[in-house]
């Protein structure tokens, strides 16, 4: 497994608040890497630096380097829209657009210039299939996305992200607003998708990290405490703080 994302001594400040402290890590391709840690530890912040969603928060300042596929994504030549096309994201709350199921999935491809109906139909179908939603919605693609259940909406958001053909999929606590059965479906989906995509997920639920991820990173107060293979981190943590956290002593 090669390294796809290479983070070097990353520091991030929101105004005067030092949100990420000297973070360095290599994230391998075609695997699931999970970020865990208590609220406010910086795990979502780091995730959002990977597709530069933090750019939109005024007062954010970044030092250090993040290279995705060998390119520093904060360098001047990088076009942030192209970056986001390659680094898709799924959010905590399902956020389908108030449009039809079809138009939700076709939104990204249309944005990037695909107009042909045949091509769009094909992308919509493959994306919905990849997101394990096709069987449930294929007969009413024109129906409003908001008529779907929460779990279906979240899979629709995954399909929408996959439709622009990204290399990386960021999942920001993508199951925390869902019921256990929907959560399980998304976890199974992530397992299927990792053969084709590099997945980085933030989760509040360490059991989820233990169940689905290959690597786990444990954050505390903006620092990386421990980063290792998931199995090792949960069975034999090196750091006392990791052990305290995964055994439920805090957080």
């Amino acid at each position: 497994m090669g390294t796809l994302i290479d983070i070097q001594s990353l520091n991030l400040y929101y105004g005067t608040f030092h949100a990420l402290k000297d973070v360095s890590m290599d994230i391998p391709e075609k695997a699931i890497t999970a970020f865990i840690g208590p609220s406010g530890c910086g795990k979502s912040t780091l995730l959002r630096t990977l597709n530069r969603m933090n750019d939109m928060i005024p007062g954010t300042r970044i030092e250090g380097q993040i290279a995705v596929g060998g390119t520093d994504i904060y360098s001047r030549e990088v076009d942030v829209e192209t970056l986001r096309k390659k680094v898709g994201m799924v959010f905590q709350q399902p956020n389908p657009f108030p449009k039809s199921i079809y138009d939700n999935v076709a939104y990204g491809p249309r944005l990037h210039g695909i107009r042909s109906k045949g091509k769009l139909d094909e992308i919509v179908e493959t994306s919905l299939r990849s997101a394990a939603l096709w069987g449930e919605v294929k007969d009413h693609l024109k129906r409003s996305a908001l008529s779907l259940s929460g779990g279906q909406q979240q899979r629709l958001c995954i399909a929408r992200a996959l439709a622009v053909n990204p290399d990386i999929l960021l999942m920001d606590e993508a199951t925390s607003a869902l019921d256990p059965i929907s959560t399980l479906k998304i976890e199974e989906l992530a397992q299927d998708l990792k053969d084709r995509y590099t997945i980085v997920m933030v989760t509040h639920n360490m059991h989820q990290a233990a169940r689905v991820s290959n690597q786990t990173v444990f954050f505390l107060n903006g620092e990386v405490v421990e980063y290792s293979d998931t199995e090792k981190l949960f069975s034999n943590p090196r750091d006392q703080r990791t052990e305290d956290y995964i055994s439920g002593r805090f957080g």
């Binding site: 969603m53 829209e81 898709g88 956020n95 657009f97 944005l111 622009v164």
Partner: peptide, 14 residues
């Protein structure tokens, strides 16, 4: 809601 804008930005919308 902000979340709708975020959804579009995350797809590479300007």
């Amino acid at each position: 809601p902000r979340s709708l804008r975020d959804g579009a930005y995350a797809l590479g919308a300007t």
